[in-house]
């Protein structure tokens, strides 16, 4: 998760409570917003006696996380009024244990209330497919139009060297649900977004085999990667006309 968001947001509060750990942060330009939740089910055990916000610089956290082995068990601990976060990595065979403390910071962050929204179009597609579309089209243009209709969803762009588009039609993969493409539509949608941000969101592709795009005209796009016990959501404000 940290790897997926560290290029978008730098200093974040990890809000801990009985439900688990949540994070909400806007990127520097305030065009995109990251919202993450790791429910208690993601942890074993999980304990939180008092609601607490752990202000963490993600670059610092990455430096420490890189010291962990892929299969290590990670334990995160913070005291009641902490000035640091304690991280312990234990190898699966328990023959190696490493321990780090990183300094916490006071982060005064604007918290936005995001209402439950009934979107006009909800598209589910393989995350690798979405990543490829964003990467391919970003070679041509800075922005992409996403047009969802009952026939399919069309990603199109135009730039100095020419234009391009990719159209996806609904498709069911019976063996692997995450490889299916589905489109649920209440009304046609056509919105334009900056590809720079979408390419950035796709760094989360390794977290989930499929990604959900939720669109309604004139509201931010929701790009959601569902995780075992939680989610990573990105919201992106649409581009507006001249």
């Amino acid at each position: 998760v940290v790897e997926a968001i560290k290029d978008l947001v730098q200093d974040c509060n990890f809000d801990c409570n009985d439900d688990g750990i949540q994070l909400q942060a806007m990127d520097n330009s305030h065009v995109a917003l990251v919202s993450m939740k790791l429910s208690t089910g993601a942890f074993s055990p999980f304990r939180c006696d008092r609601n607490i916000a752990l202000g963490i610089n993600l670059n610092s956290l990455m430096k420490v996380l890189r010291a962990a082995g892929n299969d290590d068990i990670l334990t995160l601990k913070a005291e009641d009024q902490p000035d640091s976060l304690n991280l312990v990595f234990e190898s699966p065979g328990q023959d190696r244990m490493s321990e780090y403390d990183i300094k916490l910071m006071d982060i005064d962050q604007e918290h936005l209330g995001i209402p439950e929204t009934e979107y006009a179009a909800t598209i589910s597609l393989p995350s690798a497919e979405f990543q490829r579309i964003c990467r391919d089209l970003s070679a041509l243009s800075e922005s992409v139009s996403i047009e969802a209709s009952k026939d399919g969803v069309k990603f199109s762009c135009s730039g100095d060297i020419g234009n391009g588009s990719v159209t996806l039609r609904p498709h069911t993969n019976v063996e692997d649900e995450s490889k299916s493409t589905s489109i649920a539509l209440t009304e046609p949608v056509n919105l334009t977004f900056s590809l720079k941000y979408l390419v950035n969101f796709c760094k989360a592709s390794s977290l989930s085999g499929s990604v959900q795009l939720c669109l309604s005209n004139e509201v931010p796009l929701l790009v959601e990667f569902k995780m075992g016990a939680g989610y990573l959501r990105f919201y992106l404000a649409p581009k507006i006309g001249d």
Binding site: L112, G113, P115, S194, P220, A237
Partner: peptide, 14 residues
């Protein structure tokens, strides 16, 4: 950025 609104145009502060 030009041609682009900020996200807090759409969502109010909690």
């Amino acid at each position: 950025p030009p041609g682009q609104r900020k996200i807090n145009f759409y969502y109010s502060q909690k």
